[in-house]
Design a protein around this nucleic acid. Structure first.
Lengths: 205, 205
DNA sequence: AATAAAATCCGAACATCATTCGGAAAAAGA
DNA sequence: TCTTTTTCCGAATGATGTTCGGATTTTATT
């Protein structure tokens, strides 16, 4: 039995990491279409067949790249300055969501066109949302606004619904930014303005 | 020189249409991953090589499918009841945007992950937006709200910016609906509620 | 009607891809 | 030192997009 911290296990994990690093680099430099088992293997001096010792196949590598990217998205949201006033904090969380997408355009597109297809069994919406760390950052930001008296939950429009509205908006901005608007210079000021408009609408409920 | 309306030309166009119909059917029944030149050819009793007489390649067929889908999206938006009061009309345009995505999940995903990569040369944002018929329906709906006194354009938040905000929101809803939320029952009421919140925010500017 | 040109369509081939398999070599364990 | 396990790969399989040479059909010209 191999010790989880044995040299062999650590080498194995380093190779797994090298595979993911190579995959990310190919995606960001050449786009998702250029990602292949052969391209990854070539980049780390392996044969394509050798990669199957570490991952079950190309889909598994893509899934792992997406998992890491979701973690990084969560970190990007959590990096928002917590000392900001609640409304500013929520808005800047949103801006960080879009900024992450702008800085990782192909990975972001991959995250939201690949991973969902891997969704196993359906579950209640709320349970599914609460399992998403990135969403929970937005939810907590909305909760701060409620606690500050800026937002007032209603029977037909609770905190969860408010958070979903915010997610819909920032996700729309991000998806448009990495697709239709991909050749346009990013305008964070315009994003900020739209978020202020939305937050004004939530506040007016 | 072949007459544009000659039998030969009409047969050629019918075959082009049959190829697109086959592609659409494969996409909606089996997903984008199942789309291949061999699958299309098999469905219309052609050989894969024969398809190259009508389209330059698989990418061109996908582009044509997306063009048609954008036309259908525009039609779905234009089908909104024009006799509705301006605010209701704008909201229902948004709901129709999401409904279209829900009814054409794989095609919608393809539209917004394939076509953008084909964007040639950069142009001013406003010019690019005005070239999109679907966006112009949203723009006109916002304009109606302005003319009805419901929205008031500001120097830093004009009609175009308002329309972009609305597009960001409905696009976010649609993209989440066809990816992360794809296994959830659609909730048009919740979409409608979010749109009301946003429109309240625009009205409050 | 006959002939030539253009269009249509396809089998086969090529290059690339994901994945599997049998096996050689290296590492680890007894 | 020997055995077992792990690592890694060449070659193969099946699938894909695309091209090419050529057969057949359709259209135009004489």
């Amino acid at each position: 039995m191999i010790d989880a911290s044995s040299p062999r296990t650590r080498r194995h994990q380093r190779t797994q990491q090298a595979i993911l690093d190579a995959a990310r680099e190919i995606i960001s430099r050449e786009g998702v279409a250029a990602l292949s088992m052969r391209a990854i293997a070539e980049r780390i001096d392996y044969s394509p067949a050798g990669l199957y010792e570490y991952y079950g196949g190309k889909d598994e590598i893509i899934a792992a790249v997406c998992d890491d990217a979701f973690d990084q998205l969560t970190q990007a949201l959590r990096s928002t300055d917590p000392t900001l006033p609640p409304a500013d904090y929520l808005r800047e969380c949103g801006v960080n969501y879009v900024r992450f997408a702008l800085e990782n355009t192909d990975a972001f597109l991959l995250m939201f066109t690949n991973a969902p297809l891997a969704a196993p069994h359906p579950m209640p919406v709320e349970a599914m949302l609460r399992q998403s760390p990135a969403f929970m950052v937005l939810y907590d930001a909305v909760q701060r606004c409620v606690e500050a008296g800026i937002f007032t939950p209603r029977p037909d429009y609770d905190v969860l619904a408010m958070a979903v509205t915010c997610w819909q908006m920032v996700h729309g901005m991000a998806m448009l930014a990495v697709t239709i608007m991909r050749n346009q210079p990013p305008n964070l000021g315009a994003y900020r303005r739209s978020l202020e408009v939305l937050q004004a609408g939530i506040a007016a409920q």
